[in-house]
Amino acid sequence: MADTSILGLFSNVDTAVVGADKLKEAGFEDFEVLTGSPYPEGAFGEKPVKHKLFVFPLIGAVCGFTVGMLLTAGTQMAYPMVTGGKPILSLPPMAIITYEGTMLGAVLFTIIGVIFESRLPRPRLGLYDRRITEGFIGLMVTSSEQRIGRAEQALKDAKATEIKSSARAGA
């Protein structure tokens, strides 16, 4: 039995907060809020976001550092030509290129991390409304078909401007 999603749209922030409260009263704790502006954390009483983004740059940095070290050491040993009186395996220049590698690795992995932790890419947008990027607030609940009616009622009680459903959309 597939779960159904409904999306309640609110034309202003204050009614959306009421909607969020009503959803909680009806027993729906993990609703999603869709907004067109970044609101401060906890503005809708939603759960705080937990993520592991900080792990990504560390992994990236370690990878980049390793590649940088291997590349600089490897090329000097494979082609040991002394230039400018500097020893083969000169640490200061190796440190510079390794540093760039480390930072590049950190950036690349952070980008991957941001995309992953934002739960993107999302090939199908799913239940959504274009007006969200125009100031509407969307409250989305995904639940079994039996319970979804209660959520819909809660959103209606909060005077949602419109309620969309994945079932009705045929998705």
């Binding site: 950036v107 934002s118 090939p123």
Partner: peptide, 28 residues
């Protein structure tokens, strides 16, 4: 847009990544 919808998680990560990437790019 990769299916961006504007959930609190996405906005939060925008804020965090803005700071984190800034902090990494500055030394670069």
């Amino acid at each position: 847009a990769m299916g961006w919808r504007g959930t609190p998680r996405q906005w939060h990560l925008q804020a965090v990544s803005g700071i984190l990437l800034s902090a990494i790019i500055l030394p670069i």
